[in-house]
């Protein structure tokens, strides 16, 4: 493939205490494409995605071996500040988790702590732009100072996306972003993911193979802590090379 590689992992092992959660993961993620991670529950795909922005640092018993390279830098090397890394690698969670603040304050949170806006006008503009990009602005422009928690589940999730893109990350990690949403809200988010892929590298964990097929260009299949197969999405779903992948996508395991 001629694409530029944004993230590459080399021999990554992850342990929770004594338990090995991921074993020898070697994966390359292309820039400004959507890569989906599929696999049965407990296969390690969420653990993997949380390694990419070092969210696993907040779990005391979690230990990581190997290299994860983003833009030619090993993010686990001593020189990397996880706080700056997370500004570059944003994350959207499974359950929408807007802060208990107004819609405006939710989006303004990141720019404020990173000092991205020099004036109030600039901040207003940044917040508006982020809400527009997340496809939420038209729906909520009259109630931007109401609590973020008053929105519907799908709107909350788009608010979380707006909040993430407000700090202009290069990569957005999405950990089953639609699993708490109804089909209509899911469709809206999937369209949004297509749109976002023009500017961001997106890694999405999903339980739904249909969703992986719809939104992603590359798919990686995880099983029992191992990366079984990775390739172009259409290829994985039509002619998988591994027996386990075949079994999973035809519903024999999972």
């Amino acid at each position: 493939m001629a694409e530029k590689i944004k993230i590459s992992t080399k021999k990554v092992n992850v342990f929770y205490g004594d338990k090995k959660a991921l074993e020898n993961i070697n994966l390359e993620i292309p820039e400004k494409k959507v890569t989906s991670l599929i696999g049965p529950s407990g296969c390690g795909k969420s653990t993997f995605i949380r390694c990419l922005n070092r969210m696993n640092d907040t779990i005391d018993i979690c230990r990581i071996e190997g290299k994860i390279i983003i833009d030619n830098e090993d993010i686990y090397s001593k020189e990397i500040d996880p706080v700056l890394l997370r500004a570059k690698v944003g994350m959207v969670f499974q359950k929408p988790n807007p802060f208990p603040k107004s819609i405006f304050e939710n989006v303004a949170y990141g720019p404020r702590i990173h000092g991205l806006a020099k004036s109030d006008d600039e901040l207003d503009e940044l917040v508006t732009q982020s809400l527009v990009k997340a496809g939420l602005f038209q729906e909520i422009k009259d109630r931007i100072h109401e609590p973020g928690t008053s929105l519907s589940g799908g709107q909350q999730q788009r608010l979380c996306i707006a909040r993430t893109i407000a700090i202009s990350p290069q990569i957005i990690l999405m950990d089953e972003p639609c699993s708490a949403l109804d089909p209509i809200a899911t469709a809206v988010i999937e369209e949004l993911i297509d749109e976002l892929a023009k500017n961001f590298t997106i890694v999405i964990v999903t339980h739904s193979m249909q969703q992986a097929a719809r939104v992603s260009q590359q798919t990686a299949f995880f099983h029992m802590g191992n990366l079984i197969e990775v390739g172009r999405t259409d290829q994985i779903f039509s002619t998988p090379s591994q027996k386990k992948t075949q079994d999973y996508i035809t519903g024999k395991i999972g």
Partner: peptide
């Protein structure tokens, strides 16, 4: 998940405590 949300935005621990946890 509020803490996670804040950390994932690149907030430090003290920023998270001041701006998210204490208000909540």
């Amino acid at each position: 998940n509020l803490r996670d949300g804040s950390y994932a935005m690149g907030a430090t621990k003290s920023e998270t405590v001041k701006k998210i946890i204490l208000p909540a």
